[in-house]
Write a protein that binds this DNA or RNA. Sequence first.
DNA 1: AAGAGGCATAATCAAATGTTATACCTGATT
DNA 2: AATCAGGTATAACATTTGATTATGCCTCTT
Lengths: 305, 305
Amino acid sequence: MPLPEPVPDIRSLDLLRSVAELGSIRQAALRHGISQPAASVRLRALEGILNVELLDRSRGRAQLTSAGVAVVQWAGNVLEQMRELVLATQALEVAGHTHLRIAASLTVAEYLVPGWLSHLRSSDPELIVSLEMGNSHHVVQVIESGGADLGFVEGVHAPRALTSRVVQSDDLVVVVAPSHPWARRRLTVAASDLAATPLVVREPGSGTREVLDDALAAHGLSVNVQVELASTTAIKSAVASGAGPGILSKLAVESEVREGRLVAVEVADLPLERRVRAVWFKSVALSASARRLMRQINASSVPGS
Amino acid sequence: MPLPEPVPDIRSLDLLRSVAELGSIRQAALRHGISQPAASVRLRALEGILNVELLDRSRGRAQLTSAGVAVVQWAGNVLEQMRELVLATQALEVAGHTHLRIAASLTVAEYLVPGWLSHLRSSDPELIVSLEMGNSHHVVQVIESGGADLGFVEGVHAPRALTSRVVQSDDLVVVVAPSHPWARRRLTVAASDLAATPLVVREPGSGTREVLDDALAAHGLSVNVQVELASTTAIKSAVASGAGPGILSKLAVESEVREGRLVAVEVADLPLERRVRAVWFKSVALSASARRLMRQINASSVPGS
DNA sequence: AAGAGGCATAATCAAATGTTATACCTGATT
DNA sequence: AATCAGGTATAACATTTGATTATGCCTCTT
C-alpha cells in the first residue's frame, strides 16, 4: 500500500535538518543554494503537511520546538537511508576511475553494501566505489577475471582458488504464511518434512539455494521445488499469499516476521548456516581502500562501545 | 551537508515499489491514484536521476532489472523510515478519540517510539495513538494526572507511586571529539577525572542527567558543568566542535562513534547504567492496546528467530 | 488474425516552487 | 534611546514540474 498523501518532501526535511544545525533559516537556505524566502515557504509547507509547529520564529531567529527536535531526529533516519540509496545506486553506474571495485551477491548487495558504502564515504568522501551484482557463482567469476577487487558471497563453501574470510553469518530460515499449518505448531519441523513439501526457493546458482541443497544432501534428501524465484521479495510475497513454505535469509525476513506477516519455523535437524565471505584473488594484496572496508566491516559486526 | 542534488523523489520510489509488487506500471499507477502516463513519466524521471535502468519494458510488461530489484530494496528502507516519521508526527498532533496515549521522554521518543508505532500500526491499522513528549520528570506528572495511559522514562530509579517495568537498558557513554586527549588513550578515565573536567550535559530533570548525577554522587562527586543543553544533537555538535567531553545515551551516539565523528571513552569506576522503564498508574489495569504494545516491545528487544 | 493489456509520446494545462523586492521584527551596540 | 545587523514574512512575478487526455505501437494470448 502506498504512503498516505500528503508525503513530506525529502528536500524539506533536509532543509529542516540544516536549520537545526545552523540555527537559522537564512543560513540553511544559503547552504542549500536557494533563497531565504524559498526556504521560509518550504518550511512552512512542511509544517502544514505534518500539521505540527516545528520552528518558533517569535524571537528573531528560528528556534526548534520540542516537536521540531523530534522530527529532525526522525527525518535524520529518512535522510540516512536516502543517502545510502543514492550512494549504492551511484556505485552501480560508475564506469572508470574507480578506487575500489566490489562484486557482491544480490542479498549482500541489498542488505549489507549500502551501510558499508555510507561508512566508507564518511571516512573518505573522495573514494569512488563501484558495485557489481550477481549471484554467488557470478561474483567468483568476476573476481577471478580481475573485474573486481573484492567480492562478497554467501554459501557454505569457501570458493577454491580465492582467498576468503568469513565476514558475517546469516542463517537461513523456513518461513510460512501465518495461515499455514506449520505456523501453529510450537514443535519443530524435521528435515524429512521439509524435503517432502513443495517449497518456494531461490534459483540454482544462488548462495541461498546452495546452502539449502547442501543441508538436505547431508541427509540424503533433495529439494522438492514448488517455484523458483530470483528475488527475495518475490519469494516473500509468494509465501505470504500461500504458495507454500519458503527458504530465505534471516536478514531478509526480519521485519516481516517481527510484524507477523510471515512466521519463521524451526527445522530441528537441519543446520541452515550461511556465511557471508569476503573473497579476493589469491596472492594478490588488497588495496588500501579494500583493507579499510574490511576493517570497517569487522568493526561494525562486532560492536563495542 | 545537504543531500547532493538531484534527490530521488519519495513518491517515485513508492511508485517503483508498487510496480515491483504488482508487476505493471499501469496497476501501480491505479493504486497510487494517478494516470498511467504520469506514472510512466515519473519512473523514467527516476531512472534519469539515479542514472540506472530500473525497468525492462521490452517485453510488453515492465520487468524489474537486477539493479531495479536492488533499488526497490533500498527504497524500502527509505519508505519505512518515512512511514515511521509520519506515524510518529501524527501521534504528536492527535487531540481526542485516541485509543492509546503514550508519554515518553525525549530520548525514548526520538529513538524508540517510531519503531513501536510502526509495529503497532501493522498489527492494528485502526489504532489511534497519541504521543506526549517531555523529560522524565514531566512524563511522570502526565501519568499521575491521568493525561496518558503509558509512560516511558529513563533513569536509575523507578518512580514511586507508579507501577513500572524495565523495558530496555540503554547505558550512557562519555564521548569526546577525535582530537580530544581522551580519545587517544586506550586506558580508561576515572570517575574523579570526569568530575574534574567541565562537561557538556543535559539539563537537570532529564533522565540522562539524573543518571550522571547519581553515579557521581555515589563517589561523593558532582558534575562540573561546562554547558547544559536540552537536546542530544546540540550536545553532539558541541562535543564534536571541541567544547569538551559530553555524556549521552549509547543509543544516541551509535552512528557517530561508528563513523569516527565521536569517540566513546570508558569510565573505569562509574556505572552509567540507564534503564528505560514503562510506567503506568498504580493499580490501574492496562488497556488492551497498552498491553499489546508492551508485548511487542518485549518481543523486539529480545529477538528470537 | 484478432483482441486485450500495457507502455510511450504529444499537446495542453494547473499547481507547485523559485526569485527579487520590500517591510517588519528582535536583540545587541553605542 | 536610537541605530544597526541579522533574520523572517509577504507580495508579485516567472519558471518549472507534474498531471491529464488522446492516441499509437508493441507483445503475448487465444
